[in-house]
């Protein structure tokens, strides 16, 4: 995609690990927190506010020696539905994966309704993912049945 005359992004390649590309720049820090990356001790590099034809501005995360299971990575589809994963082994891309919006998400996001039991008692949140216009999704709380928009969603 990148024009060969333009200077390329200087982020060092990783030997083994995962590259997550095409994250909307404004959601980078939410993605980091959803995946719990602040607790990871291996090398992580990320770039943000990179120009992207599709997203306007995108972010990219390179994680050394980290591999995800589908159920863990798919939750970022709520805010980064176009994210792509490159699995790197010995400096080579061995597999490309796309994220898929899960049908149900548990214990990741906070319910937007202050009067919901999950915001008042020690109850884990559960949401059903529902389609909205323009490929977007909304979260319906399993408990209070109210809709939380993924745009204003707060992540634990």
């Amino acid at each position: 995609m990148a024009d060969s005359n333009k200077p390329k992004l200087q982020v060092s390649a990783i030997k083994n690990g995962t590259v997550i590309d095409h994250i909307p720049a404004k959601h980078l820090f939410k993605v980091i927190s959803m995946l719990g990356l602040e607790k990871i001790t291996t090398q992580i590099t990320f770039g943000t506010n990179l120009e992207s034809k599709k997203l306007g501005y995108k972010a990219i995360i390179k994680l050394s020696e980290v591999f995800f299971q589908d159920k863990d990575i798919n939750k970022i589809a709520l805010i980064a539905p176009h994210a792509k994963l490159n699995i790197i082994k010995d400096f080579k891309v061995t597999e490309k994966r796309e994220v898929q919006v899960p049908e149900q998400i548990k214990g990741i996001a906070k319910c937007g309704n202050p009067n919901c039991i999950t915001n008042n008692d020690n109850v884990n949140t559960v949401f059903f993912v529902q389609p909205k216009d323009n490929e977007k999704v909304a979260l319906k709380c399993h408990y209070c049945e109210k809709i939380t928009d993924t745009e204003d969603m707060e992540v634990f």
Binding site: N115, C116, I117, N120, H142, Y143, C144
Partner: peptide
């Protein structure tokens, strides 16, 4: 109960 979702829980 006054909280929404309390019954499901």
């Amino acid at each position: 109960h006054p909280l929404e979702g309390s019954a499901r829980y």
